[in-house]
């Protein structure tokens, strides 16, 4: 007599085989193409992440046209501050100079956003101004040229 195989076992095995095959076939079609090329992720996602447009052009782009400002800035304490820190994102303006979305901030509040007194700032990091005492009522840029702060205007 042959070895007895209970009939429910091969039937179940068949059901499981179908299920697993189906899963593997589905998986084959669903796994993204570039998945696993460099690691456990979609390699194409690296390209996706490099895609977004920039808003800040970087100061070298500014200096291509505004060399005068570059020269001026280089001579004073604001030399390390990049243009877009105060003037806002400039990529659109770089692409087409017709787009005039460059900020030209002025006023005590704006300069104060860096220069206001706060115990959190190191003395060496920045000149701190007490806005309540220093030439109250005057706009900073009446005396200071923001590109060259110590070249005082009259």
């Amino acid at each position: 007599m042959k070895f007895y195989v209970p009939p429910q076992i091969p039937r179940l095995a068949l059901a499981f085989a179908i299920f697993i095959t189906l899963f593997l076939v589905l998986r084959h079609f669903l796994v993204p193409d570039t998945f696993g090329k460099y690691g456990h992720y979609r390699a194409a996602s690296l390209i996706d992440n490099a895609q977004p447009e920039i808003h800040y052009a970087g100061q070298q782009a500014c200096f291509k046209c505004h060399q005068d400002i570059e020269d001026k800035k280089a001579q004073d304490v604001h030399s390390e501050i990049h243009c877009e820190t105060c003037h806002g994102p400039g990529e659109k303006h770089v692409v087409s100079s017709k787009v005039e979305d460059i900020l030209k901030p002025s006023g005590r509040e704006f300069c104060g956003s860096c220069h206001i007194i706060n115990a959190g700032k190191q003395k060496s990091a920045i000149n701190q101004i007490d806005l309540n005492k220093h030439n109250v009522g005057k706009n900073c840029i009446e005396c200071h040229n923001p590109h060259q702060p110590w070249e005082m205007k009259k």
Binding site: L14, A17, I18, T21, L24, V25, H28, F35, G36, G39
Partner: peptide, 28 residues
């Protein structure tokens, strides 16, 4: 059953070849 087994085996084999590395902890 025979046909099914062969098919399943082929599918498993192919799927493994295609992307076995993504089942493992992929090394950087």
């Amino acid at each position: 059953l025979k046909t099914a087994t062969v098919l399943a085996g082929a599918a498993i084999g192919y799927s493994w070849l295609k992307s076995s590395q993504i089942l493992l902890f992929a090394a950087e």
